[in-house]
């Protein structure tokens, strides 16, 4: 019943864990939002609730594996999903170019949201080095590059393992 949420959630957490390990092992400065592609899959294939839960898991993973205060990325991730779903009314979430642009947009949105939350909360956590404007743009480009292949992987898994759309909605109803 919650197969899609589990599959996409585990995939997102795994990708985030892999990403953070890669960043550490390779000594890279900024992340590349590997799991954004999964968020795009959720936006494209899952129902509203399923997608929102998957987005919340993705945001939770970002916080958990990045050492951020848990909750900081959850609301932005769900908000990003909502934005993407709204955009999907006019733009099909498929094809390299669309995914490239959406990936970049999602990364920039997440960065902007985090900056906003830091400003609003007056957080003691020094996130300025991660969420400076330059870093947001750089991460946007990286996210744009990795979004299409990760989307393809997530979509393939979803098609393989989940037959119907909106299982959670059915269960809740």
């Amino acid at each position: 019943m919650i197969k899609r949420v589990s599959i996409l959630g585990i995939l997102a957490l795994t990708l985030t864990a892999v990403e953070t390990a890669l960043l550490s092992a390779l000594g890279l400065g900024g992340g590349f939002y590997l799991s954004l592609g999964v968020l795009l899959v959720a936006a494209a294939r899952a129902g509203d609730i399923e997608g929102a839960v998957v987005a919340a898991i993705i945001g939770y993973g970002w916080d958990l594996f990045s050492g951020l205060p848990v909750g900081m990325s959850v609301a932005p991730a769900v908000a990003i999903l909502v934005v993407v779903r709204v955009l999907s009314q006019g733009v099909e979430i498929a094809g390299f170019l669309q995914l490239f642009i959406l990936g970049a947009l999602c990364a920039v949105l997440h960065g902007a949201c985090c900056l906003g939350m830091i400003v609003v909360s007056g957080s003691a956590v020094d996130l300025s080095k991660w969420y400076s404007l330059g870093a947001i743009v750089r991460q946007g480009i990286m996210a744009a590059l990795v979004a299409p292949p990760v989307f393809a992987l997530g979509e393939w898994l979803d098609k393989m393992l989940v037959k119907e759309r909106g299982e959670l909605e059915v269960w809740l109803s």
């Binding site: 987005a55 945001g59 909750g71 609301a75 769900v78 909502v82 939350m117 909360s121």
Partner: peptide, 11 residues
Amino acid sequence: ALIALPLLLFL
């Protein structure tokens, strides 16, 4: 709820 609750918790 998924937007508001984490936001409130964070804030």
